[in-house]
Simulated scan of single mutants.
Amino acid sequence: MLFSLLAFTALVQALPNAGGGGSLVRFPCSQIVIDRIDPLVNPGQIPSPHIHQVIGGNAFNATIPSTDVSSLATCTTCSFAEDLSNYWTANMYFKARNGSYKRVPQIPNRGNTGETGGVTVYYTSSGAGKTTAFKPGFRMLVGDPMRREAGVNPSMKMQSCYRCYKGPNFKGDDLSPCADPTVDTEGFPNKMCSGIRTNLHFPTCWDGKNLDSPDHKSHIAYPTAGPASFHTDGGACPSTHPVKLPQLMLEIVWDTTQFNDKSLWPEDGSQPFVLSTGDPTGFSQHGDYVFGWKGDALQKAMDGACFGATCTGLKTQNMATANKCAVPKTVNENTEGWIDKLPGTGN
């Protein structure tokens, strides 16, 4: 597992109202496609400006109707068979000294159960009846693909962060992602790592009315204390967004070890990684979400004091089955191996 079983158990027990039904659901989702389409920000546009890595249900396409996605998809790459949602983030590339690029592969977290690349998904609730699951048609965006400067208030937790592993086997990994500025950074680490982890925290407060908004952000908000760390309930919601949502967090582990060769790095020693947005800072990391859990499955999970990758009453599938779920690639372009420029950016 990502954390030791003892530490992970202690974390769940520390959840607010854990004795009254607080849940921390953590499960793997394999990659379903890497493609240059974005049904949330650039619906119908083929190709979209930059490439994404995508997980979840097979309803993913250049356009996803604003409806109950669980009725459109027939399979999912996630271990919870009833989660037909889609989640997608920017890809990471390595830019070599000669100017060529290579995609950095995602690798499963500890406790790999057969997932292929992909992302680890977390949902946290603060107790039965205290957290309202997302509704059919709900969608949202966290982060800004155009951001190139630090934006976090030092007194607030970060909505997204990177952590540089110090050695093999995820050394240096501990709890509270995006909460410790001594080990977490908003931008790319500026040193060689044995792997880089990205965490993205979505807002946990909703206006209670709109399933989406023109910027995909205005209908949601962070608690008044700022972005939550996934093992807390984040505090009170603002009066404009009074409905408490599950804390959704995405966690990506990038295998950077094949690039730990100084002869490939820039001559000045500057960090060589770049997001698929063309961003060499890392500040533009972002995550998109289209809700697609079947029926009341997510509400049951949030009310049911669930722990880890299983939950009483919810259907699971092994990753061999999940890995059979796929969608065809829409944009015919080379994204793998050494390439001369990033897809879409012209860099």
Results as ranks from 00 to 15, higher is better:
residue 89 T to K: 02
residue 89 T to F: 13
residue 89 T to W: 05
residue 90 A to R: 09
residue 90 A to S: 14
residue 91 N to T: 09
residue 91 N to E: 13
residue 91 N to Q: 12
residue 92 M to H: 04
residue 92 M to G: 03
residue 93 Y to T: 05
residue 94 F to G: 07
residue 94 F to Q: 01
residue 94 F to E: 02
residue 95 K to C: 05
residue 95 K to W: 01
residue 95 K to N: 13
residue 95 K to T: 00
residue 95 K to S: 11
residue 95 K to Q: 15
residue 96 A to L: 01
residue 97 R to L: 06
residue 97 R to I: 09
residue 97 R to D: 12
residue 97 R to G: 01
residue 98 N to G: 04
residue 98 N to Q: 06
residue 99 G to W: 12
residue 99 G to T: 10
residue 100 S to K: 14
residue 100 S to I: 07
residue 101 Y to K: 04
residue 101 Y to I: 07
residue 101 Y to V: 02
residue 102 K to I: 07
residue 104 V to T: 12
residue 104 V to R: 11
residue 105 P to C: 08
residue 105 P to Y: 11
residue 106 Q to D: 09
residue 106 Q to I: 10
residue 106 Q to E: 10
residue 107 I to P: 03
residue 108 P to K: 01
residue 108 P to W: 09
residue 109 N to V: 09
residue 109 N to E: 14
residue 110 R to W: 12
residue 110 R to I: 08
residue 110 R to T: 06
residue 111 G to V: 07
residue 111 G to C: 08
residue 111 G to Q: 03
residue 112 N to Q: 10
residue 112 N to C: 04
residue 112 N to T: 02
residue 113 T to L: 14
residue 114 G to N: 06
residue 114 G to C: 08
residue 115 E to G: 06
residue 116 T to V: 13
residue 117 G to H: 09
residue 117 G to L: 08
residue 118 G to C: 06
residue 118 G to P: 01
residue 119 V to G: 00
residue 119 V to E: 12
residue 120 T to D: 14
residue 120 T to M: 15
residue 121 V to A: 01
residue 121 V to Q: 10
residue 121 V to P: 00
residue 122 Y to H: 14
residue 123 Y to P: 00
residue 125 S to T: 04
residue 126 S to E: 08
residue 127 G to Q: 04
residue 127 G to Y: 05
residue 127 G to D: 06
residue 128 A to I: 06
residue 128 A to H: 05
residue 128 A to W: 00
residue 129 G to V: 01
residue 129 G to N: 05
residue 129 G to T: 07
residue 131 T to M: 00
residue 131 T to A: 01
residue 131 T to V: 11
residue 132 T to G: 02
residue 132 T to A: 14
residue 132 T to F: 08
residue 133 A to Y: 00
residue 133 A to L: 00
residue 133 A to P: 00
residue 134 F to N: 03
residue 135 K to E: 14
residue 135 K to M: 11
residue 136 P to W: 05
residue 137 G to S: 01
residue 139 R to V: 03
residue 139 R to W: 04
residue 140 M to R: 14
residue 141 L to Y: 12
residue 141 L to M: 15
residue 142 V to K: 07
residue 142 V to D: 09
residue 143 G to F: 10
residue 143 G to N: 06
residue 143 G to V: 06
residue 144 D to Q: 07
residue 144 D to Y: 08
residue 144 D to S: 14
residue 144 D to I: 07
residue 145 P to T: 06
residue 145 P to D: 13
residue 146 M to A: 15
residue 147 R to I: 02
residue 147 R to C: 04
residue 149 E to A: 14
residue 150 A to N: 12
residue 152 V to N: 15
residue 153 N to M: 02
residue 154 P to H: 10
residue 154 P to A: 10
residue 155 S to K: 14
residue 155 S to C: 09
residue 156 M to F: 10
residue 156 M to G: 02
residue 157 K to Y: 12
residue 158 M to T: 02
residue 158 M to Y: 03
residue 158 M to A: 14
